[in-house]
Simulated scan of single mutants.
Amino acid sequence: MPLVIGEDAREKLAHQLQELDVRELVDVLRRVLPAYTETANGLRNVLVLAQATVWDTDTPDGTQDTSTDLSTVVWPDAGYYGDHLGPDQGLWEEGSCRSCDLAVVSNAKRAHCPVCGTACYLT
């Protein structure tokens, strides 16, 4: 049975997570999100972390064009980085998973897709 905690405990946990840098937050979520994977009616549902990039640009006709790119955050390859979380540079490395073709981002050039587990090589 899942643990049920009160509002104060959730607020404390949220505050602790906000204290982490992006690498540490991604690593904590790497340990948590896979526990919420479900398979039902032939569908596999995976809870993942995503990053949305939004551009607000003025078009030549004076209207506002808002475009959004959504990328899945991939888990740094800790083995490649000597059991560390990779460089502390934000989610600036981009690419796509060569197996499931998701658009992906990471703080590290070497990572693993949270959906299929494939090694991702980002630029």
Rank of each mutant, 00 (worst) to 15 (best):
S71W: 01
S71I: 03
T72S: 01
V73M: 06
W75D: 15
P76F: 01
P76Q: 04
P76L: 07
P76A: 03
P76K: 08
P76S: 04
D77G: 08
D77K: 01
A78W: 07
A78G: 06
A78F: 09
G79F: 06
Y80T: 12
Y81P: 05
Y81K: 06
G82N: 09
G82S: 15
G82V: 07
G82K: 10
D83T: 06
H84N: 15
H84L: 14
H84W: 04
H84F: 01
H84M: 11
L85M: 06
G86E: 03
G86P: 09
D88W: 01
G90P: 05
G90H: 03
W92S: 11
E94S: 13
E94P: 00
E94I: 14
G95E: 07
G95Q: 02
G95R: 04
G95S: 02
S96A: 11
S96P: 02
S96L: 01
R98F: 04
R98T: 14
S99L: 05
S99R: 13
C100T: 10
C100W: 12
D101S: 14
D101G: 11
D101H: 13
L102A: 12
L102R: 14
L102T: 05
A103F: 09
A103G: 10
A103Y: 11
V104F: 08
V105K: 04
V105W: 01
S106F: 05
S106E: 01
S106K: 08
N107T: 14
N107C: 02
N107S: 13
N107A: 12
K109V: 05
K109L: 10
